[in-house]
């Protein structure tokens, strides 16, 4: 039997928080497909949280919760590379990633932890504003 190369899930989500738990469910199921992941629950949560934070950023900043707006999420689980790649694409306002400072962890903040968590928990985080919209790419090696 031919070995599976990759599993791909594509979602189109409205620009609202309502359906973000669907993303967490997809990630949990994909992580289950990989054998021998250390601290599986922690790894799954870290990826779920990172994807959730980026999607929340899209809802808040790219679309500012506008009705009728959607963004695409593609999750690619590669068996040979043992990686989960999550790509998000929206056509909302561009985001100035460089304008987000890393929080001073010696102080207690009410805001500013979201993207810090994404960068801390994922192996690769790339954001690009292109003519067809904004592209996020998160990678975690399992």
């Amino acid at each position: 039997m031919k070995q599976r190369q990759s599993d791909i899930i594509r979602l189109e989500l409205p620009a609202t928080y309502t359906y973000l738990p669907l993303l967490s469910a997809c990630i949990a199921e994909m992580i289950e497909q990989i054998d021998s992941v250390n601290d599986r629950n922690v790894v799954a949560y870290n990826i779920q949280l990172s994807a959730h934070e980026v999607c929340a950023n899209i809802v808040d900043h790219a679309y500012e919760h506008q009705d009728g707006k959607f963004f695409e999420v593609t999750l690619t689980l590669s068996f040979e590379a043992r990686s989960l790649v999550i790509e998000m694409h929206d056509t909302g306002d561009a985001f100035n990633l460089a304008s987000v400072p890393k929080p001073d962890l010696d102080e207690v903040h009410e805001h500013g932890y979201g993207l810090f968590l994404v960068h801390s928990l994922m192996d690769e985080v790339v954001y690009q504003s292109q003519p067809d919209g904004n592209h996020w790419r998160l990678v975690k090696y399992l």
Partner: peptide, 15 residues
């Protein structure tokens, strides 16, 4: 089972 950055902010405000 799941806490995000908004939840952290809410708890900090409560504190």
């Amino acid at each position: 089972s799941f806490v995000d950055s908004t939840a952290l902010a809410t708890l900090v405000q409560g504190l």
